[in-house]
Design a protein around this nucleic acid. Structure first.
Lengths: 195, 195
DNA sequence: TTGTGTATACCGTATAGTGAGTGTACAAAA
DNA sequence: TTTTGTACACTCACTATACGGTATACACAA
């Protein structure tokens, strides 16, 4: 049945998501994923052609989910754009402080696959990051920022810097300070009546 | 002879450096390192207790080397601090555009070892990043910047963002724009007579 | 000077386990 | 009857590390 198929496939991706993220791509065996999904390895290979394909689908499945979290923090914050941007960084500071946080899955996967240029999973990571930047750019346009695109890129770069620094230092202060820098750059481009 | 010992040890670290960086930590076998160093695996284990120890020494050996490159770009650039900072980002844009560039080794190693909190190699990565930030802070102090420490952190975060973004997108434009943002934040803190 | 003990530096060969991916068979659904 | 989804048992290559053993060099006692 197609329904069963999708269900099994979803369970596999869920198991892959959890293990790839917590343990790392290379350190996670296909056996472990199959076991966690409650199926045989042979069944996994019925649904996916290879481990590489599974890696790619894992990352792709995270794209909109992660983006949605950022959007929620942004939208639910009262105030002007600097307040909303700060809210995103504060949100990140909070979730990355959780002991189960293991860095940005997209960055880490791209890092592990750095020896395989052109790997589809790297493209999935690239796409996700482009989506984050585009979203920022749109919000800044709607907010009538002067150099919306460039500013979005600055904020995006600070976001990436905050994430990768958190992975190394495990100190959320860096994320909040990154948010300060972002707010500063955004305020610099705000129309006069808002500031 | 101690001389021979150091020589062998250095050769091992050199081989480890090359393979760990190009291929990744987990994807590199101890066998491959021994072979590249031209020794037996038994000899490698005579000089190093474990693969983990080798990983740690590999990263530690890169700390001052990488920092020195940044310093050189900074020192050799004529002009004010914004010019010098831009020179650092331009230098990074150049080397990261080389086809053999595989991302920041410290970030990538921290990413691969994310499932082993407290791993000595992660501490080595953390130390290196602290050294980069401290160096920036010192330079900004000597340059009489107003909020030297905070500004150094901002620039550091942009640097990390530039490196991790380059790993995902392979587009050096991001690095130059990151340099623009850094220059902007630095200019904002410069004493009036210089600006 | 000669002999003996000990540390250094190295090699070749196991070993116990894990890795991704397959061949074949069986059951249920279409 | 054919297709679809699943399982068991397997291959073969690789992996970190352990073990047993050897050649050289130097220190000190006879």
């Amino acid at each position: 049945m197609t329904d069963t198929k999708n269900n099994t496939k979803r369970r596999i991706i869920e198991a892959a998501n959890s293990l790839f993220y917590m343990t790392g791509i290379r350190a996670t065996s296909v056996d472990a994923i199959a076991e966690k999904a409650g199926i045989t390895k042979r069944t996994l290979y019925y649904h996916f052609q290879s481990k590489d394909e599974l890696i790619t689908e894992y990352l792709s499945s995270r794209d909109q989910l992660n983006l949605h979290v950022y959007k929620k923090w942004f939208d639910e914050q009262e105030g002007d754009i600097t307040d909303k941007i700060r809210a995103v960084f504060n949100g990140i500071a909070e979730i990355t402080s959780h002991p189960k946080w293991r860095g940005c899955g997209f960055q880490r996967t791209a890092g592990e696959l750095a020896n395989k240029p052109g790997h589809p999973a790297i493209k999935a990571a690239s796409l996700h990051k482009k989506n984050v930047e585009s979203w920022l750019s749109e919000e800044f346009c709607h907010g009538s920022l002067k150099n919306a695109e460039v500013t979005a890129r600055y904020v995006f770069l600070l976001l990436e810097g905050a994430l990768s620094t958190m992975l190394v230092h495990h100190d959320p202060v860096y994320i909040r300070e990154s948010g300060n820098a972002a707010a500063l750059l955004v305020a610099h481009e705000m129309p006069p009546e808002d500031h």
